[in-house]
Simulated assay, not measured.
Amino acid sequence: MARHSIKSFNVSVNASGDAVDVDIVTELRKPYRFVLRPDVHYPTAQDIEAKLTAALSHCVTHHQKADFNIFSERSYISINVKGFIDTRFTGDSL
C-alpha cells in the first residue's frame, strides 16, 4: 500500500445521479480517477460523495496521507486514511 499526500480533489455525483466521479491529485504525476457506484455499504451516490469528501478534506486539512488500492478484477477501490476511514467502494479506475 502506497501512502500519498492529497494536493486537491473533486468528488461529485454524476449528472444521472447513479455514480460518483472522483479526481484526486497527489504528488504523483498522474491523478487518480475513479467512478464509484452504490452498493450494500454505501446505498446511494450521495452516501459515497459525503464519506469520501469528508475523508479527503481531512487529509488536506491535517496533512495526512491516504492509501489507494485498485482491484480491477473485482471492481472495487480500497481507500484508507489512518484513524479516519478504511473502506472499499464499488467502482472502477479510469
Rank of each mutant, 00 (worst) to 15 (best):
V60I: 11
T61S: 06
F84M: 10
S78E: 15
T87V: 10
I48E: 01
K82Y: 09
K51S: 11
S72Y: 09
A54Q: 11
Y42E: 07
L52V: 04
T44F: 00
H63Q: 14
Y42I: 03
S75H: 15
I77Q: 03
C59H: 06
T53F: 00
F34V: 04
I79H: 11
S75A: 14
H58N: 11
I79K: 11
V60G: 04
F34T: 02
L52N: 01
I48S: 03
H41W: 07
P43M: 01
I85Y: 08
T61A: 09
Q64D: 12
H62G: 00
Q46M: 01
R29V: 11
H62V: 04
G83C: 05
T44D: 08
H62M: 09
S78N: 14
N80C: 12
F71H: 15
S57N: 15
T87F: 09
F68D: 06
L56M: 07
Y76K: 08
A54S: 11
E49L: 07
V40E: 12
T61V: 08
I85R: 12
L56S: 03
L52F: 03
A55R: 08
D39S: 10
C59P: 04
H63T: 10
I79D: 04
D47K: 01
I70Q: 13
H58V: 01
F34I: 04
T53I: 03
S78V: 10
L52A: 03
R33C: 09
V81H: 05
K65Q: 15
I77H: 05
F71E: 13
T87P: 05
R37H: 14
I77L: 08
I77Y: 06
Y76E: 07
E73I: 12
A66L: 11
L52G: 02
I48L: 06
T87E: 14
R74H: 15
S72P: 12
Y42A: 08
P43T: 02
I77C: 03
Y42L: 07
T87H: 11
F34M: 04
H58L: 08
H58R: 09
A54C: 02
S72D: 15
D47P: 00
